[in-house]
Amino acid sequence: MTARVITESAPEPQIVLRRSRVSGDRTRVLGVIGAVIVLALGTVAVLAPVLAPYDPTERAGTPFSPPSAEHLLGTNDVGQDLLSEMIYGTRVSLTVGIVAAAAAMVLGTVVGLIGGYFPRLGAVAMRGVDVVLILPFLPLLIVLAAYLGRSIVNTVIIIAILIWAPTARVIRSQVLSLAKRDYIVAARSMGAGHGYVIRRHVLPKTLLLAIGEFVAATSGAILLESSLSFLGLGDPLQESWGSTLYWAQARGAFLTPAWKWWVLPPGLLIMLSALGFALLGYALEQRINPRLRRS
Protein backbone atom coordinates (compact mmCIF):
# COMPACT_ATOMS: atom_id res chain seq x y z
CA MET A 1 0.00 0.00 0.00
CA THR A 2 2.83 2.38 0.79
CA ALA A 3 4.32 1.67 -2.60
CA ARG A 4 1.10 2.51 -4.36
CA VAL A 5 0.78 5.77 -2.57
CA ILE A 6 4.22 6.76 -3.74
CA THR A 7 3.50 5.89 -7.35
CA GLU A 8 0.29 7.84 -7.18
CA SER A 9 1.86 11.02 -5.98
CA ALA A 10 5.12 10.76 -7.84
CA PRO A 11 3.94 11.57 -11.38
CA GLU A 12 3.01 15.14 -10.54
CA PRO A 13 6.33 16.82 -11.19
CA GLN A 14 6.85 14.71 -14.31
CA ILE A 15 3.56 15.88 -15.75
CA VAL A 16 4.43 19.46 -15.07
CA LEU A 17 7.75 19.01 -16.82
CA ARG A 18 6.06 17.50 -19.84
CA ARG A 19 4.07 20.64 -20.45
CA SER A 20 5.19 22.92 -23.19
CA ARG A 21 7.79 25.32 -21.97
CA VAL A 22 6.18 28.36 -23.57
CA SER A 23 2.75 27.90 -22.02
CA GLY A 24 4.31 27.08 -18.66
CA ASP A 25 6.30 30.30 -18.74
CA ARG A 26 3.29 32.32 -19.63
CA THR A 27 1.33 30.85 -16.77
CA ARG A 28 4.19 31.55 -14.44
CA VAL A 29 4.51 35.17 -15.57
CA LEU A 30 0.78 35.74 -15.11
CA GLY A 31 0.95 34.06 -11.73
CA VAL A 32 3.83 36.27 -10.64
CA ILE A 33 2.04 39.39 -11.80
CA GLY A 34 -1.05 38.30 -9.87
CA ALA A 35 1.00 37.50 -6.79
CA VAL A 36 2.74 40.88 -6.92
CA ILE A 37 -0.58 42.72 -7.16
CA VAL A 38 -2.09 40.70 -4.32
CA LEU A 39 1.00 41.14 -2.16
CA ALA A 40 1.09 44.87 -2.83
CA LEU A 41 -2.57 45.29 -1.92
CA GLY A 42 -2.10 43.09 1.14
CA THR A 43 0.80 45.28 2.25
CA VAL A 44 -1.28 48.43 1.77
CA ALA A 45 -4.10 46.89 3.79
CA VAL A 46 -1.81 45.90 6.65
CA LEU A 47 0.10 49.18 6.68
CA ALA A 48 -2.97 51.36 6.13
CA PRO A 49 -2.53 53.40 9.34
CA VAL A 50 1.09 54.15 8.37
CA LEU A 51 0.46 54.90 4.70
CA ALA A 52 -2.75 56.92 4.94
CA PRO A 53 -2.13 60.66 5.38
CA TYR A 54 -5.40 61.10 7.32
CA ASP A 55 -7.90 59.12 9.31
CA PRO A 56 -10.53 58.28 6.67
CA THR A 57 -13.39 59.13 9.05
CA GLU A 58 -11.89 62.51 9.92
CA ARG A 59 -13.17 65.56 8.11
CA ALA A 60 -9.78 66.73 6.98
CA GLY A 61 -10.59 69.38 4.43
CA THR A 62 -13.24 71.36 2.59
CA PRO A 63 -15.91 69.13 1.10
CA PHE A 64 -15.68 68.50 -2.65
CA SER A 65 -12.12 69.83 -2.98
CA PRO A 66 -10.22 68.81 -6.09
CA PRO A 67 -6.79 67.16 -5.74
CA SER A 68 -4.16 69.34 -4.08
CA ALA A 69 -0.88 68.94 -2.26
CA GLU A 70 -2.67 68.24 1.03
CA HIS A 71 -5.20 65.90 -0.52
CA LEU A 72 -3.69 64.05 -3.44
CA LEU A 73 -7.06 62.69 -4.55
CA GLY A 74 -9.16 65.56 -3.21
CA THR A 75 -11.89 65.15 -0.64
CA ASN A 76 -15.36 63.67 -0.69
CA ASP A 77 -18.72 65.25 0.09
CA VAL A 78 -18.01 65.69 3.80
CA GLY A 79 -14.34 66.59 3.47
CA GLN A 80 -12.81 63.18 4.12
CA ASP A 81 -9.51 62.56 2.36
CA LEU A 82 -10.16 60.29 -0.62
CA LEU A 83 -6.64 58.88 -0.77
CA SER A 84 -6.89 57.73 2.84
CA GLU A 85 -10.29 56.29 2.08
CA MET A 86 -8.81 54.31 -0.80
CA ILE A 87 -6.04 53.00 1.42
CA TYR A 88 -8.35 51.98 4.24
CA GLY A 89 -10.86 50.69 1.71
CA THR A 90 -8.27 48.09 0.73
CA ARG A 91 -8.76 46.56 4.16
CA VAL A 92 -12.51 46.26 3.85
CA SER A 93 -12.49 45.04 0.27
CA LEU A 94 -9.74 42.46 0.84
CA THR A 95 -11.24 41.29 4.14
CA VAL A 96 -14.72 40.88 2.71
CA GLY A 97 -13.30 39.20 -0.41
CA ILE A 98 -11.09 36.79 1.49
CA VAL A 99 -13.53 35.94 4.27
CA ALA A 100 -16.42 35.42 1.86
CA ALA A 101 -14.28 33.32 -0.45
CA ALA A 102 -12.98 31.30 2.51
CA ALA A 103 -16.51 30.66 3.73
CA ALA A 104 -17.50 29.67 0.21
CA MET A 105 -14.45 27.39 0.01
CA VAL A 106 -15.33 25.62 3.26
CA LEU A 107 -18.95 25.20 2.22
CA GLY A 108 -18.06 24.12 -1.31
CA THR A 109 -15.40 21.68 -0.12
CA VAL A 110 -17.69 20.04 2.41
CA VAL A 111 -20.52 19.67 -0.09
CA GLY A 112 -18.08 18.54 -2.78
CA LEU A 113 -16.44 15.97 -0.49
CA ILE A 114 -19.70 14.49 0.67
CA GLY A 115 -21.16 14.65 -2.82
CA GLY A 116 -18.19 12.90 -4.37
CA TYR A 117 -17.58 10.37 -1.67
CA PHE A 118 -21.19 9.28 -1.18
CA PRO A 119 -22.45 9.27 -4.78
CA ARG A 120 -26.10 8.75 -3.89
CA LEU A 121 -26.19 11.59 -1.40
CA GLY A 122 -24.07 13.48 -3.90
CA ALA A 123 -26.69 13.18 -6.61
CA VAL A 124 -29.11 14.99 -4.34
CA ALA A 125 -26.57 17.56 -3.17
CA MET A 126 -25.54 18.31 -6.74
CA ARG A 127 -29.10 19.20 -7.69
CA GLY A 128 -28.92 21.78 -4.93
CA VAL A 129 -25.67 23.02 -6.44
CA ASP A 130 -27.36 23.21 -9.85
CA VAL A 131 -30.07 25.38 -8.37
CA VAL A 132 -27.54 27.80 -6.93
CA LEU A 133 -25.61 27.84 -10.21
CA ILE A 134 -28.59 28.77 -12.35
CA LEU A 135 -29.94 31.44 -10.01
CA PRO A 136 -29.64 34.88 -11.58
CA PHE A 137 -26.80 36.48 -9.72
CA LEU A 138 -27.54 40.15 -9.22
CA PRO A 139 -31.31 40.04 -8.58
CA LEU A 140 -30.79 37.37 -5.93
CA LEU A 141 -27.97 39.39 -4.44
CA ILE A 142 -30.20 42.46 -4.22
CA VAL A 143 -33.11 40.55 -2.70
CA LEU A 144 -30.89 38.89 -0.12
CA ALA A 145 -29.18 42.13 0.76
CA ALA A 146 -32.49 43.94 1.19
CA TYR A 147 -33.92 41.10 3.23
CA LEU A 148 -30.98 40.52 5.56
CA GLY A 149 -30.22 44.18 6.13
CA ARG A 150 -27.04 46.15 5.79
CA SER A 151 -23.94 45.12 7.61
CA ILE A 152 -20.55 43.89 6.65
CA VAL A 153 -21.28 40.43 8.12
CA ASN A 154 -24.41 40.11 6.01
CA THR A 155 -22.47 41.16 2.92
CA VAL A 156 -19.99 38.36 3.55
CA ILE A 157 -22.78 35.82 4.10
CA ILE A 158 -24.62 36.86 0.94
CA ILE A 159 -21.51 36.64 -1.20
CA ALA A 160 -20.55 33.27 0.28
CA ILE A 161 -24.03 31.90 -0.40
CA LEU A 162 -23.69 32.86 -4.04
CA ILE A 163 -20.20 31.69 -4.90
CA TRP A 164 -19.69 28.32 -3.21
CA ALA A 165 -21.38 26.22 -5.90
CA PRO A 166 -18.61 26.10 -8.55
CA THR A 167 -16.11 25.05 -5.87
CA ALA A 168 -18.40 22.21 -4.81
CA ARG A 169 -18.54 20.96 -8.40
CA VAL A 170 -14.80 20.98 -8.95
CA ILE A 171 -14.10 19.31 -5.61
CA ARG A 172 -16.76 16.68 -6.21
CA SER A 173 -15.35 15.60 -9.56
CA GLN A 174 -11.91 15.30 -8.00
CA VAL A 175 -13.27 13.23 -5.11
CA LEU A 176 -15.27 11.06 -7.49
CA SER A 177 -12.13 10.10 -9.35
CA LEU A 178 -10.10 9.69 -6.15
CA ALA A 179 -12.69 7.48 -4.50
CA LYS A 180 -12.36 4.89 -7.29
CA ARG A 181 -8.58 4.68 -7.11
CA ASP A 182 -7.12 1.34 -6.12
CA TYR A 183 -5.44 2.48 -2.92
CA ILE A 184 -8.65 3.92 -1.56
CA VAL A 185 -10.61 0.82 -2.51
CA ALA A 186 -7.84 -1.17 -0.80
CA ALA A 187 -7.98 0.96 2.33
CA ARG A 188 -11.75 0.60 2.43
CA SER A 189 -11.60 -3.19 1.97
CA MET A 190 -9.06 -3.39 4.79
CA GLY A 191 -11.69 -1.93 7.05
CA ALA A 192 -10.80 1.76 7.14
CA GLY A 193 -13.81 3.91 8.10
CA HIS A 194 -15.17 6.66 5.91
CA GLY A 195 -13.90 9.30 8.27
CA TYR A 196 -10.39 7.90 8.19
CA VAL A 197 -10.27 7.58 4.41
CA ILE A 198 -11.60 11.09 3.88
CA ARG A 199 -9.20 12.58 6.38
CA ARG A 200 -6.14 10.56 5.43
CA HIS A 201 -6.46 10.16 1.67
CA VAL A 202 -9.16 12.28 0.08
CA LEU A 203 -8.92 15.60 1.86
CA PRO A 204 -5.16 16.09 1.44
CA LYS A 205 -5.45 15.59 -2.30
CA THR A 206 -8.40 17.99 -2.70
CA LEU A 207 -7.25 20.70 -0.36
CA LEU A 208 -4.75 22.12 -2.84
CA LEU A 209 -7.47 22.29 -5.42
CA ALA A 210 -9.74 24.05 -2.95
CA ILE A 211 -7.06 26.63 -2.28
CA GLY A 212 -6.78 27.36 -6.00
CA GLU A 213 -10.54 27.76 -6.16
CA PHE A 214 -10.42 30.01 -3.13
CA VAL A 215 -7.99 32.46 -4.65
CA ALA A 216 -10.04 32.69 -7.81
CA ALA A 217 -13.27 33.08 -5.87
CA THR A 218 -11.75 35.96 -3.90
CA SER A 219 -11.60 37.95 -7.09
CA GLY A 220 -15.31 37.43 -7.70
CA ALA A 221 -16.12 38.20 -4.08
CA ILE A 222 -14.32 41.55 -4.20
CA LEU A 223 -16.27 42.52 -7.29
CA LEU A 224 -19.55 41.45 -5.72
CA GLU A 225 -18.80 43.41 -2.57
CA SER A 226 -18.14 46.48 -4.69
CA SER A 227 -21.34 45.98 -6.68
CA LEU A 228 -23.39 45.62 -3.52
CA SER A 229 -21.82 48.63 -1.85
CA PHE A 230 -22.17 50.71 -4.99
CA LEU A 231 -25.86 49.92 -5.13
CA GLY A 232 -26.10 51.05 -1.51
CA LEU A 233 -26.97 47.52 -0.42
CA GLY A 234 -23.83 47.04 1.61
CA ASP A 235 -23.16 49.08 4.69
CA PRO A 236 -22.79 52.61 3.25
CA LEU A 237 -21.07 53.72 6.44
CA GLN A 238 -18.20 51.24 5.90
CA GLU A 239 -15.33 52.79 3.99
CA SER A 240 -14.93 50.31 1.15
CA TRP A 241 -14.16 51.09 -2.49
CA GLY A 242 -17.68 50.22 -3.45
CA SER A 243 -19.18 52.58 -0.90
CA THR A 244 -16.85 55.36 -2.08
CA LEU A 245 -18.43 54.83 -5.50
CA TYR A 246 -21.86 54.82 -3.88
CA TRP A 247 -21.24 58.23 -2.31
CA ALA A 248 -19.74 59.52 -5.55
CA GLN A 249 -22.96 58.55 -7.29
CA ALA A 250 -25.21 59.82 -4.49
CA ARG A 251 -23.47 63.20 -4.46
CA GLY A 252 -23.37 63.65 -8.20
CA ALA A 253 -19.67 63.09 -8.88
CA PHE A 254 -20.57 61.20 -12.04
CA LEU A 255 -21.98 64.41 -13.49
CA THR A 256 -19.13 66.70 -12.50
CA PRO A 257 -15.39 66.79 -13.14
CA ALA A 258 -14.94 65.09 -9.75
CA TRP A 259 -15.26 61.68 -11.42
CA LYS A 260 -11.56 61.86 -12.29
CA TRP A 261 -10.48 61.68 -8.66
CA TRP A 262 -13.58 60.28 -6.98
CA VAL A 263 -14.79 57.58 -9.38
CA LEU A 264 -11.73 56.52 -11.31
CA PRO A 265 -9.40 55.55 -8.41
CA PRO A 266 -11.81 53.17 -6.64
CA GLY A 267 -12.82 51.76 -10.01
CA LEU A 268 -9.21 51.09 -10.94
CA LEU A 269 -8.44 49.60 -7.54
CA ILE A 270 -11.41 47.24 -7.78
CA MET A 271 -10.26 46.20 -11.22
CA LEU A 272 -6.68 45.77 -10.08
CA SER A 273 -7.51 43.62 -7.07
CA ALA A 274 -9.92 41.46 -9.04
CA LEU A 275 -7.28 41.07 -11.73
CA GLY A 276 -4.57 40.18 -9.21
CA PHE A 277 -6.58 37.41 -7.60
CA ALA A 278 -7.87 36.18 -10.95
CA LEU A 279 -4.35 35.89 -12.40
CA LEU A 280 -3.00 34.22 -9.28
CA GLY A 281 -5.97 31.87 -9.21
CA TYR A 282 -5.50 31.05 -12.87
CA ALA A 283 -1.84 30.24 -12.44
CA LEU A 284 -2.47 28.14 -9.35
CA GLU A 285 -5.25 26.27 -11.05
CA GLN A 286 -3.11 25.50 -14.08
CA ARG A 287 -0.69 23.83 -11.71
CA ILE A 288 -3.13 22.16 -9.38
CA ASN A 289 -6.24 21.17 -11.28
CA PRO A 290 -5.61 17.67 -12.69
CA ARG A 291 -7.95 18.18 -15.60
CA LEU A 292 -6.19 21.30 -16.73
CA ARG A 293 -2.79 19.85 -16.07
CA ARG A 294 -3.29 16.95 -18.46
CA SER A 295 -4.70 19.04 -21.27
Binding site: F137, P166, A216, G220, L223, S226, S227, I270, A274, A278
Partner: peptide
Protein backbone atom coordinates in the same frame (compact mmCIF):
# COMPACT_ATOMS: atom_id res chain seq x y z
CA UNK B 1 -16.89 33.65 -13.31
CA UNK B 2 -15.18 36.87 -12.42
CA UNK B 3 -16.42 38.55 -15.55
CA UNK B 4 -20.09 38.39 -14.62
CA UNK B 5 -19.83 40.63 -11.57
CA UNK B 6 -17.20 42.71 -13.36
CA UNK B 7 -19.54 43.34 -16.22
CA UNK B 8 -22.35 44.17 -13.85
CA UNK B 9 -20.22 46.73 -12.08
Amino acid sequence: RTAVPALVL
